[in-house]
Simulated scan of single mutants.
Amino acid sequence: MGRTKVSLRSRPISKGRRTLYLEFYPPVRVQASMKMQRYETLGMYIFAKPKTLTQKEYNAAVMAQAEAIRAMRVQAVINEEFGFLDKEKLNGDFLAYFYKEAQQRNNSWMSCYKHFHTFVDGHCTFRQLNVDLCTRFREYLLNAKQLDAPDIPLSVNSASNYYRKFRGMLAITLRDDYIREDINKHLERIEAKRNRIEFLTFEELYELSKTPCDIPVLKRASLFSCLTGLRISDVMKLQWPDIVPNIKGTGYNMRLRTEKTEAEAIWPLSPDAMELCGLREEGAVFKGLTRSMLNKPLKKWLTDAGITKHITFHGFRHTYAVLQLASGTDIYTVSKMLTHKHVTTTEIYLDLLDEMKQDTLGRIRLFKET
């Protein structure tokens, strides 16, 4: 059988008009439904018997547009690309597709999904995805409120993070052939603001380690993060089977798939880190640790240690990075230990290292004050 021919046809409709459609002979197969399809409706019409100059000009313009579409379909047939016939795919539920992808990732993706669900009022097909819609979602994020605190505006950095996730979703949608246009090429990013990153110095970390905490598991988990760079989500899900003897049999390694980057990594654990884990047993290493402990209990412990900086649990991860660099660990190793995808992400800690060096000014003196 020869190659499919594409012909422009018309048939009469109401009010003296004719609707235009394409005919494929022999028919082509629609991949989504696996059905053979012979016709494609263009959603265009012409006047059957144009009476005025305006109607004649209109007919000529529409026919030229229809002929251009026919030419594109001929090229698609030659390349055996029949996605344009996948009406069912185009009319598919983008929100359901988005939700499925978000479920397989992390909380940030799910929050992005929830914001987009609110923005489109719970309905969006693949066909409706275009530059205008995505641009308006960008504006929505810049003016949105937090999901769990409707009176508090979404921070610029959160908006930037969610829009980055959404653009990632668009790339996945294009990859899976649900849309034909790379919408991301036409979208403007939301630039994040660099927040001041707080970390503990060697002296502050030592003081904190010697200061009693009302919740022992909070203290152990916090100091463990300072020694490993683990995020709170990964500390909470760390299980004893994740801690295994190293190849040499002289210590232990931690094998874990991080929640944010979904990357599996191996961390060598120092004797101090192993001691913080406590006695080996079934289940979680830091059993009983909850996010509610990261507010008042954590702040009280830091205050008791004489630390006035605004240190969050994530600040312990920053502490790990800066102190490793200050100790001479090369940036590529630190980047790998933090499971950063790009070393440029780790480079922000070099500025903090310079700041730490500035703090040492005047500590070594040759002459007494007069």
Rank of each mutant, 00 (worst) to 15 (best):
138 R>Q: 11
148 D>E: 11
169 M>G: 04
147 L>I: 08
140 Y>M: 02
176 D>S: 02
147 L>Y: 05
184 N>Q: 07
133 L>M: 09
137 F>W: 08
177 D>Y: 12
183 I>T: 01
180 R>V: 12
197 I>Y: 10
145 K>V: 03
159 A>H: 10
152 I>E: 15
150 P>N: 08
155 S>L: 05
134 C>P: 04
161 N>E: 12
194 R>K: 13
196 R>A: 13
150 P>A: 11
160 S>G: 15
143 N>Q: 13
180 R>S: 08
161 N>Y: 10
151 D>H: 14
148 D>S: 13
186 H>N: 01
143 N>P: 00
169 M>R: 03
160 S>P: 10
138 R>C: 05
157 N>W: 12
142 L>Q: 14
161 N>L: 15
184 N>V: 04
135 T>D: 09
164 R>E: 05
187 L>K: 12
163 Y>R: 05
172 I>D: 07
162 Y>W: 05
141 L>A: 08
174 L>Q: 02
198 E>V: 09
171 A>D: 08
159 A>T: 10
154 L>T: 10
195 N>S: 15
198 E>I: 07
189 R>A: 14
169 M>T: 09
141 L>K: 08
167 R>Q: 10
197 I>M: 15
136 R>G: 00
165 K>R: 12
153 P>H: 11
176 D>L: 07
152 I>Y: 09
165 K>A: 06
144 A>W: 11
139 E>W: 06
171 A>Q: 08
163 Y>S: 06
194 R>C: 00
164 R>H: 03
185 K>L: 02
160 S>Y: 10
134 C>D: 06
188 E>N: 14
188 E>H: 12
153 P>Q: 07
177 D>G: 05
179 I>H: 04
135 T>A: 06
136 R>H: 06
152 I>C: 08
169 M>A: 07
